[in-house]
């Protein structure tokens, strides 16, 4: 479900196909509902080792993240700090991961590559960036840990099921049309880099 509250676009789980297809690269949104964390080891198990993901995530958000979780007898699991990790590490697996799990909403840090963009276009999914390094602001969006799987992978790599409220701001970087904001930005950055190398090269000749 998508709604606009005080000028903010908020998507709530379960996400529908329409919710996802309406998003465009550059949109800024927030989400309510269920997210599942999954990073390197979860992708390796599901794709390289062909194990089944112990969660249904086709209408939820996958977050590339490894939280700090505190466990106590009185309050159970509590999210102390959480934030996105470098999504590009999952690029190798993400096309197949999207195809296999049906996930349509991925949250991470930095951009992803052409294969993920292809999966987004083919299967109607999006990738969003959450500003990273803000682990306390983000932890306060976590209402409850509703479950955990694959804890044998360690705290950072386990699959945590978390209910969130107002998680964001999420900036859509790949939309279901396959537009890839970071790929576009990197081309411009590379162009400017070449100009700078030539410029510094000339300056260096005068000082060295």
């Amino acid at each position: 479900m998508t709604e606009t509250i005080n000028g903010k676009t908020i998507l709530s789980t379960p996400f529908t196909e329409e919710d996802i297809l309406a998003l465009r690269a550059g949109d800024v949104i927030y989400i309510n509902g269920d997210i599942v964390t999954g990073r390197d080891d979860v992708h390796i198990r599901v794709i390289a080792e062909n194990m089944d993901l112990p969660a249904v995530i086709n209408d939820k958000a996958l977050m590339h993240a490894g939280p700090i979780v505190k466990c106590s007898e009185e309050s159970g699991f509590e999210v102390i700090a959480i934030g996105p990790t470098t999504s590009m590490r999952m690029e190798k697996f993400e096309y197949d991961f999207i195809k296999k799990t049906g996930v349509r909403f991925i949250i991470g840090k930095g951009g992803m590559g052409e294969r993920t963009a292809e999966a987004c276009r083919e299967f109607g999914a999006v990738h969003c960036v959450l500003p990273a390094g803000n682990a306390v602001v983000t932890a306060l969006c976590a209402e409850e840990i509703t479950g955990v799987e694959w804890l044998d992978l360690g705290m950072a790599e386990a699959l945590w099921n978390i209910r969130v409220k107002g998680l964001g701001p999420l900036i859509v970087t790949i939309d279901s049309g396959g537009r890839n904001l970071f790929a576009e930005r990197k081309k411009e950055i590379a162009r400017r880099k070449e100009e700078q190398i030539e410029e510094i090269g000339k300056k260096l000749e005068s000082i060295l």
């Binding site: 939280p67 700090a81 934030g83 500003p131 390094g133 803000n134 306390v136 602001v137």
Partner: peptide, 20 residues
């Protein structure tokens, strides 16, 4: 958002980034 996070991390005594 960074400054809000720094403020909350200090106030709550929590690591500012989950990747310590």
């Amino acid at each position: 958002m960074m400054f809000e996070n720094m403020r909350l991390a200090s106030e709550l005594g929590r690591p500012s980034c989950q990747d310590t």
